[in-house]
């Protein structure tokens, strides 16, 4: 059970290790708060859809499992979208475009297909939490780095004095690729070191 949880955080981190669902990773991580919110929204969808799909796995005929999974996922995403629009309108105005795209995020369908369809409800939910939080910390870290270098602030709080030089490119798509590439390289380095000391 514990393994199901931690796998998503590091060893099978969806962003840095599995390299799936990168579209929102690159698009919304302009600021730390955007990354965190997108991560948590995805986590919520992931937990709910993994648990429900695991519950329904014996009822759904194998041939129509993909459309069935997509309907379940799309339903949860739409609920998150509407609730966010109603109760967190400011956040929704920033993330609005990307919330519906959680439907096609490969992490959600990927976990449904690879894990939830084969394991118990509880393990699937725990796997969803682990994967979701792994995705969340990756997005938050990426957002924090880009916000700090691109806008000189962190979680909306200005850290650099007014007029300080910032790297505008970090707020733009190339900044996302550069940061993601460097972070992946760092993670690979850490993992390689760990393997060396282990062996």
């Amino acid at each position: 059970m514990w393994k199901d949880f931690v796998r998503g955080l590091w060893a099978d981190n969806p962003t840095f290790r599995l390299n799936i669902g990168l579209c929102p990773v690159l698009a919304v991580t302009v600021s730390a708060l955007n990354g965190l919110s997108m991560g948590l929204a995805t986590t919520l969808v992931l937990i709910c859809s993994s648990a429900l799909i695991s519950l329904l796995k014996n009822l759904i005929p194998a041939k129509v499992r993909i459309p069935a999974f997509i309907i379940v996922i799309a339903t949860f995403v739409t609920i998150v979208d509407l609730v966010m629009h109603a109760y967190l309108p400011d956040l929704h105005s920033v993330l609005g475009l990307f919330i519906p795209l959680i439907v096609v995020n490969c992490i959600v369908l990927g976990r449904a297909e690879a894990f939830a369809a084969k394991h118990s409800v509880l393990r699937s939910a725990v796997d969803g939490i682990g994967m979701g939080l792994g995705f969340t910390w990756a997005l938050t870290l990426l957002g924090a780095i880009r916000e700090l270098l691109g806008s000189g602030s962190l979680f909306g709080m200005a850290l650099l004095p007014e007029g300080a030089t910032t790297l505008g490119i970090m707020s733009l798509p190339p900044g996302a690729f550069i940061t993601l590439g460097l972070l992946m390289a760092m993670m690979n380095m850490i993992t390689a070191r760990q393997k060396k000391t282990a062996s």
Partner: peptide
């Protein structure tokens, strides 16, 4: 297959219309 998909779709539509 038809029945299962239809039921899932209907339940989903029902929930969404309430939300």
């Amino acid at each position: 297959m038809v029945v299962v998909l239809a039921i899932i779709g209907m339940v989903s539509a029902g929930i969404l219309s309430v939300v």
